[in-house]
Write a protein that binds this DNA or RNA. Sequence first.
DNA 1: ACCTGAACACCGTTCAAGT
DNA 2: ACCTGAACACCGTTCAAGT
Lengths: 186, 186
Amino acid sequence: MALSRQQVVTTAVDLLRRYGLGDLSMRRLARELGVAPGALYWHVANKQELLVEVADVLLAEIPEPPTDRPPAEALTGVAVAIREALLRVPDAADVVALAYAVEPGSARPFRDLARLVHDAGAAASERDEVATLVLHHILGSVAAQQNRALVAQVDPDLPAPAATSDAKAFEVGMAVIVRGLATGRD
Amino acid sequence: MALSRQQVVTTAVDLLRRYGLGDLSMRRLARELGVAPGALYWHVANKQELLVEVADVLLAEIPEPPTDRPPAEALTGVAVAIREALLRVPDAADVVALAYAVEPGSARPFRDLARLVHDAGAAASERDEVATLVLHHILGSVAAQQNRALVAQVDPDLPAPAATSDAKAFEVGMAVIVRGLATGRD
DNA sequence: ACCTGAACACCGTTCAAGT
DNA sequence: ACCTGAACACCGTTCAAGT
């Protein structure tokens, strides 16, 4: 049966999940699908477009935030949930950052962030800016942890990964943001 | 005369500044230096090590913060200065993020950030965590703006770059952080 | 409509051999 | 000590030609 765009994207996500961005090449993907490399370009314009599609799949899998908690707590909750979801996929931070450059704010988790930032007390005029700050904190935290793991594979004379202290550091940052929000309310 | 490690790094920085990360290949660098690709590997272990060296050069060029301003203002000042310095070099955010994974907190501008975060009222126990938050905000902001410019080259049917609104958004984020810091003081 | 074969113009890295 | 030549195992993308 004929190859489909869906199939290409799904297999790409699978490859990313299993081996990381370094092994997600158009040629490797074609091999995985039992097809010549050129065939992919009938379904997808180029690799960048494919990666945006991959990022959309990853973001769509992030659970929606519960609605029964106070706003500040809920905001930290989604931020942590997004962070943990991305941490599970190798190089997810890089892939999502690229997608975010192409279509900023279009993914659902971003819109969740913006809404909760507003509920947590931000002025309407600052909603998107603060949501972006939270997003940068998430992506930066995930990228740092994932890149550190990647570097440690090659260069094993570095400080231990210490994932729990990364999580702690992330929450300290979120607490500062939440406090800054509440203070800004008028 | 023989090639030196310094020369390799300096030429790499030059290539990055002029053409971006996409044209900073070991082979292109060797050509620029009038040498065979293999020669580079006598001076540098691999490309990753070279990029860390390149990042160190970029960070070393960032001016030191003035000491005559109130701490909160000085903190925002360095953050803006680091952001502007990195914005001038294509793909600087990616390069610095990689270096940060290898040697977190070793570069001088990072230490400046941590010191000013402390002066601005953070508990000593939260100093590095908040400095990291500021760093993520800087790198995220720079990466978003630079990747957006890069994408616009290929895909010219997107919203205009709007660099000034990026700068505004960055300062809104810094204001939230600074407020969150002051509130946390005891 | 969908895919293959083959090419084009590249990569990072290694390593025997030269000077 | 420092570098070349040549190779190894790859890339992303294009495009005539096939079915």
